[in-house]
Simulated assay, not measured.
Amino acid sequence: MQQIVNFLFKNSITLLFLLLLGISLSFTIQSHAYHRSRTITSANAVTGYVYGQINKVEMYFSLSEENQKLASENALLKNMLFNKKDTVLATVPPSLGIYKVIPGKVIANSYSLQENYLTINKGTADGVKEDMGVVSSLGVIGYIEKTSKGYSTIISVLNKKFRLGAKIKKNNHFGTLTWNGKSTGFAQLVDVPRLATVVKGDTIVTGAESTIFPENIPIGTIEKVYIDKKTNYYTLDIRLFNDMTSLGYIYIMENKDREEIQQLQQATVPPNE
């Protein structure tokens, strides 16, 4: 207590000056509109800066939530896109289309093996089933292999067991998309007929015969062309649009007519005698 008294006594003149200065400034601001306006403006600037910095911090910590919202919105847009007719987007609600789209996120990814898999944070509780197609915003990733209540595994394009009907976009010539186990950036389109016109840079997309993926989902572009000496068909090296070593948000697609199509096909094809 004595120290406080000593401090006030030693600095009494300075403190009195500051007090009087504050009072005079207060009177000046209150009695002059210009000074009052400038003071309010300065205070608002300081307050705005502080609130701006606080908002930046809040936005940083809410990025995960915002990304999830964006993924859900993208899933809705993809629902509309995958269920379009001809070149016009369907205006019907997504629930009435053939394809249902479920957003998810990759939580584990292998790409250095011969049989690579991904794990995602969606499972049967979210409506995910085996053999559903999986894409990113850039194109095909794989299809669902196994599911649990909250998670699923995906057979990656970078898996030697992976098979998918695909076509050259410009001329609709078909082949089978596989992976030879060598490069993470390339897959192979095999059994492409020799009469097909193939040029480096041509786009490869999913074919119409797939019951897992909608038609015309991007896959990649032709990088090299080979002739298989055994089959006399083309084998094409496809540069994948997706960087399969770095995947985040994905979209799982359910063809709601798939079971009906498969049953019809099985009933149509006679059993082997």
Rank of each mutant, 00 (worst) to 15 (best):
Q188D: 14
I252L: 05
F82Y: 13
T206V: 04
P214C: 08
K56R: 14
L158S: 06
A166Y: 03
V190A: 00
Q265C: 06
K105T: 10
L89R: 09
E58W: 12
P218K: 09
L195K: 12
G48Y: 00
K129L: 13
V106C: 05
D237S: 14
V205Y: 00
Q265R: 10
R239N: 12
V101K: 01
S183D: 15
V128A: 03
E58C: 07
N67Y: 12
Y49Q: 11
E259G: 05
L21N: 11
K161V: 14
S210C: 06
E115G: 06
Q114D: 08
Y234A: 05
D86M: 11
A43C: 10
S183H: 11
L76A: 14
G97L: 09
L138A: 15
T41V: 10
S137L: 10
L264G: 05
A75I: 10
S24A: 11
T245S: 14
E209N: 12
L16A: 12
D243W: 06
D131E: 13
R239K: 14
L8V: 11
V190H: 01
Q114M: 05
T206F: 01
T178Q: 01
N272I: 10
S62W: 00
V50I: 15
K85G: 14
Y111I: 02
T14K: 00
L236W: 01
M80A: 08
G220H: 07
E223R: 12
T221L: 02
S62G: 02
T124E: 12
T231P: 02
H32C: 08
T197W: 03
L118C: 02
Q265T: 12
D228E: 06
Q53I: 15
Y251E: 05
S136E: 05
E223D: 15
I238G: 02
T153S: 13
F17V: 09
E209T: 13
G150W: 04
F82D: 02
E66C: 07
S210K: 07
I141K: 02
A196E: 11
P218I: 01
E260L: 11
F186E: 13
G201P: 04
Y151M: 09
I217C: 04
A75K: 04
N6H: 07
F27S: 11
V198R: 04
F82C: 03
P193N: 07
Y249N: 11
L247F: 06
Q263H: 09
F7K: 07
F213W: 03
Y234I: 06
L177H: 04
V134L: 08
I13Y: 00
T91G: 15
V190K: 07
N242R: 12
L158C: 05
A75H: 08
S42A: 15
E65F: 05
T211W: 03
L81E: 04
T211I: 13
Q262C: 08
F17K: 08
T203Y: 05
L247C: 04
T231E: 01
T47Y: 07
I212T: 14
I102W: 04
L264P: 00
N172W: 00
M253I: 14
E58G: 01
E209M: 10
T147A: 04
N116I: 01
F174A: 09
I155V: 15
G139V: 03
L70W: 13
T231N: 01
A196K: 05
V190G: 02
Q53G: 12
R38C: 12
